[in-house]
């Protein structure tokens, strides 16, 4: 066997897994999006693009899309901003910094359902820690109906999402920061640049690959934040925390309209692909050069 063919064999396991776990479900999902299958009956009809048309007029789908954008923006801004600040403080490999990085990373290894259950108790309006703490320090007027207020609930869940993943993003940013050659920072400092200028002109541009990774990963993660929402609010109250993934799930498994749910999934796939592409273009992760 020629070397080329032998090497090609190494691609087979990965390609097989990719085809079985990604390509096949994607193609099947697209196929079912053109049908009116209810998920149970053995037969179904082809309905063309009517599921996609229905989706554009669907009241709950629209709400879910708007909620998802709110959720995503909050998580991306808060998670990226805080993790960057923490990473700048913890970039040096001192014992204290390594310990703190590990501490911040702990929520990431917890099951998201456990995280959701813990925070559901924390947010309980009458017996929860959050309001109890605020009342305890004399800030009783700041207490909130964290998960019961239709205007606030989506941000309460988004805050939990950010809390759970900031540690992970800190690690990515620290890796990015440590990859920046020290000479460049020193040269800028010798040229008289201040801390803010060094960050703007040297650190941030060179951190772009890590930032692009963090932002795109956070975006995808926030679109997929199914388990937190499902456990904490179930999409309520009054659809105020319904996002695309819970909409797809409910449409498929509660309303038994797999065709419509599949159309939602295809839309979801396209949306994430477009957003990720745009983010990479905007952050220009590919133009970093030392």
């Amino acid at each position: 066997m020629k070397a080329g063919k032998r090497i090609a064999l190494f691609f087979v396991p990965g390609l097989t897994l990719y085809a079985a776990l990604f390509l096949y479900p994607t193609i099947t999902g697209f196929y079912y999006s053109l049908t009116n299958w209810d998920g149970i009956s053995p037969s179904y009809d082809f309905v063309g693009l009517s599921n996609y048309r229905e989706l554009t007029e669907h009241i709950i789908f629209r709400k879910a899309l708007v909620n998802n954008v709110k959720f995503m923006l909050f998580v991306v801004l808060v998670q990226t901003g805080l993790s960057l600040l923490l990473a700048l403080r913890l970039a040096r490999n001192t014992k204290r910094n390594v310990a703190l990085r590990a501490l911040y990373f702990v929520p990431t290894v917890l099951s998201s359902v456990s995280v959701a259950l813990i925070w559901t108790f924390v947010f309980d309006p009458t017996q929860g820690l959050a309001n109890g703490f605020l009342s305890g320090i004399g800030l009783g007027s700041w207490t909130q109906n964290w998960l019961g207020d239709t205007g606030l609930a989506i941000f309460s869940v988004a805050a939990v999402q950010a809390w759970a993943h900031i540690g992970q993003m800190v690690i990515l940013f620290v890796a990015g920061l440590q990859a920046i050659p020290k000479e460049l920072i020193e040269a800028a400092r010798l040229d008289g640049a201040g801390a803010l200028q060094i960050f703007r002109r040297v650190t941030w541009p060179l951190l772009a690959p890590a930032a692009a990774l963090v932002v795109s990963y956070t975006t995808i993660q926030s679109f997929k934040a199914f388990d937190l929402i499902f456990t904490m609010t179930g999409g309520g109250p009054v659809y105020s925390t319904e996002i695309l993934s819970t909409f797809i799930y409910n449409t498929a498994f509660s309303s038994y309209t797999f065709g419509l749910a599949s159309a939602g999934s295809v839309f979801f796939l396209a949306l994430i692909a477009v957003i990720t592409y745009v983010q990479f273009r905007v952050i220009r992760a590919d133009r970093v050069a030392y």
Partner: peptide, 16 residues
């Protein structure tokens, strides 16, 4: 109803 009834889950109301 108890305060902030919309944010209270089954277990919380059951405990009250």
């Amino acid at each position: 109803f108890q305060q902030d009834a919309l944010g209270t889950k089954d277990q919380g109301a059951g405990a009250l």
